[in-house]
Each structure stands twice: as C-alpha cells, then as structure tokens.
Design a binder for these strands. Sequence first.
DNA 1: GCAAAAGTGTTTGGTCTACACCCATGA
DNA 2: TCATGGGTGTAGACCAAACACTTTTGC
Lengths: 229, 229
Amino acid sequence: MSLIKKDKFSNIRDLSIPVLALDVVIFTIFKWELCIITQKKEKENWPKHVLPGWIMAKWFSIRENIENLLKRKTWIQWVFYEQLKTFWEVERDPRWHVVSIVYYALVWTDNFLHNVDFTQVDIIKFDDLDKLDFMYDHKKIIEYAKQRLKWKLEYTNVAKDMLGEEFRISQLQEVYEIILWEKIDKRNFQKKIFKLKMVKETWNLDKSTNRPAKLYKFVDKELKIYEVL
Amino acid sequence: MSLIKKDKFSNIRDLSIPVLALDVVIFTIFKWELCIITQKKEKENWPKHVLPGWIMAKWFSIRENIENLLKRKTWIQWVFYEQLKTFWEVERDPRWHVVSIVYYALVWTDNFLHNVDFTQVDIIKFDDLDKLDFMYDHKKIIEYAKQRLKWKLEYTNVAKDMLGEEFRISQLQEVYEIILWEKIDKRNFQKKIFKLKMVKETWNLDKSTNRPAKLYKFVDKELKIYEVL
DNA sequence: GCAAAAGTGTTTGGTCTACACCCATGA
DNA sequence: TCATGGGTGTAGACCAAACACTTTTGC
C-alpha cells in the first residue's frame, strides 16, 4: 500500500481495476503479552502504525509473496500463516480503491527477536491498540484477526506456532490464558490436553524453574482440528 | 473471469498486477437435496460449469458488486452472503493470473425459482459434483464452501437463510440432515434448538401435513452464534 | 526452611445419547 | 380405519467445572 511509489506501479491508480495488496497481521507472545508486529511510519511528525504489506506481485505464489514480504519488511522467517480475509471496502484508502488480502501469522518470539531491526519495525501490545494510531482500517483488521486467533486456539493445535519445539504444559496454558484473556484451571486444562492427545512427552526436563518440569511437544507439526474448549 | 471479453477490460492481461474477479457459490435446498447454482458454458461442444462471477468493478462496494452480479447472472435477490476465501494460486487459470474473491450465498428456493432463466443457469446437486465438469478450480472451491457451510450450521443460526419466514421444526431439522448428511434424533434436536432459544413460536399452524404442525420463526434476523452441535 | 512452580483426584451437576409410543388429521 | 408425520420423557453414560494439598528444587 505504502509501496505504491515504486516505478513499476506508478500508473496503477489509473487502471480500470482496483489495486491489489497483501497485508499480514503478525502475532507473537512477548513478555507475557500478546503482541503485534507493525511497521513504523511518520505522518505529519506523528507516529503511525501500519501492518507490514505491499502491492501484490503478479505471477508469484502466495508462499513467495508472503515469505518475501515478511523477510524484507520484518526479517522474520519460519512462521505459520493462514488467510484471514480480504478487505475491499471502497473507502478503506481515501486515495485509491485498494483491495487487501490479509493473512495472519504466528511467530515464536525467540525465532526473530535477534534479527529484527527496531528502527523499522515495532512490537506493540494488543492491549495498547486503542492508544495507538493506525493507518487505513488496520486497527479493525487487527481486532478481526484477534478474534480468529481465539477461535483457532479453541478448536485446533495452532498454539504450536507460538511456542518452541519443547515446552512445559504450564507454558502452553499461558498461551491460552494470554490470548483468551481468562484464567484456566491447571488440572482441568491438563486433563483436556492429554485426553485429546494433542501433545506427547519428550522425557526431557526443564530445570530452569524451581522444581524441574516435564517437557512436551506437539504430536502434529501441521494444523489439526482438536476440540480444545 | 469469462467476462474478460468486455472492451473495458481488453488490455487487462498486460497489466503488471493480477486480474481481480468475484465469484459466488450459491447454495439452496431444492427437492430435499443440497444444490448449487452454476452458469452454463460450452467448451468444444462439451457442457462445462462455472460459478457465477465476473471481473470486479472498481469503485463499487461489495454489496453493489455482489448484488449486481447475482441479479444479472442469476436473477436472484434476497440472499444471505458472506466472504468465503480469496483464491489466488498462480496456476488456477492457465491464461492469466486471476485472483478470485469468493463469496458463498444461501437462498431459500422459493425466492428465486420463478425468476430463473434455465437456459443460462443450472441447478446442480452437490452430490453430482464429481460427475460434472467444472472450469478452473471451481470444484475445489465448492467443496471448500460446503465445509464452511457445515461449520456455520453447527455454530450459528445460518439455517434461517435456507427457509422461509415461518417453518416447522421438522423442516429445520431437514436442513441440518441434508447439509450435515446424517440422521438426527427428532427429540434431541428439538430440545437443543429450544434450549438455545434460536427459534420462537408464531402461534400459526401449518395444515398442509396430516396432523397440523406448529410454525416457528427465528428469533434473530441476523447471523448470530449458537452452539448448535 | 522457605519460596516458587509442579504435580495430582474427587465430587457434583449438567449435557448428550439412545430409545418408543400416542396423537391429530386427511384420505 | 389407516397412513402420515407431529409431538413428547426418561435413564445412563459421559464430560466439564470446581476445588486444595503435597512435592521438588534453588536459594
């Protein structure tokens, strides 16, 4: 969207069809909070946020478009991503009719923290959304994505993409508590997760806490349906 | 997609961006079967089916685009519709890179049967899908839409759009049985629906069956979440 | 020995399932 | 009077929610 200045797209607004863009809502859990990765912008000396996005390149696959976008705008690799929705209201951008295909992505924070260039990219807390200024309808899009993320947690193993390979059950529970924004009973949570056979033991122990904890990993690497809640 | 012959789009394939199309999967229940409305095509003297669709017009809202599309291609009005997914694999159309924003729609058969021009439009049974020839990836899209429809039935009141204003509980149950493709226990179904307060009595009776049946209507006109199954 | 997080069972109430008979009407 | 679909209740199995104390380790 903001990349429209590139030469090859300079005549784009004169076309008889709308402009097609790709935007991504990237979620991660950072310091016990649900966060979103945005691009920094300035407009009239005032900080603005935008979702990472660009004008879609023709003849490139989704995978290439998204992975290039993420790599070049945020230095992030190894993410889970899934289509969220296409936003195409006429009035979303006052200048042109921009149709945005929006994806949401999940990253395990440790996978990108050391790569990110924080002069270009911001990590913002989801709870600060209302305090920040977003361009276009991006705030609405983020709220929509959060809703989808909640649903996905409730009936799939999508949490796998917000954790490392091995994790304590209590860490898995934290992911649920942070995103669903509610306290969950420890015993009932474990019973549920084990009964679903969503995770399996690794026989390794995490000794970083006081009493060492068993480490688990997900049975499936791929997204799979589980009736969690 | 097939409308590309129109003059105003004649140069569209030379653009640096993909072509943007709108397609709709229209479901209806016709003669106790789940059906889909397609456009008739012929290719090399062989009947082909296509989803109703066209190249998206710039500066028109979703509502205008969809409602005009439906009206002009299928003579259908008064439908429920919701965005399904955007399909944008490079190889979906061998000629151009076409990005299709696909919606699914539900119609109560009585609302359109007398309007339709069957020389242009076909009503096909979902169960015949594998026997028929579709252009592009439209068969895959229909299967995806069917899956979404099932989920929606299971956790919303979306069935309202496949029935008239007032209906017998057994008719509602039929909608569920046809789409979910399973037999449901009459007593358990009624208990569930009533407990959810999804429908309310109208105090009218349907005397067209042997023993007159109570008629109900939906409490909400709008789509609302209900944990039906 | 104390602080911190791990680990573990039981009871209770609610929900889901399976199942069969009588009723009101039109033909 | 019979065929058709309408209307209704219960028992048993299973699942979800609420709830608190003991264990292991590092400091």
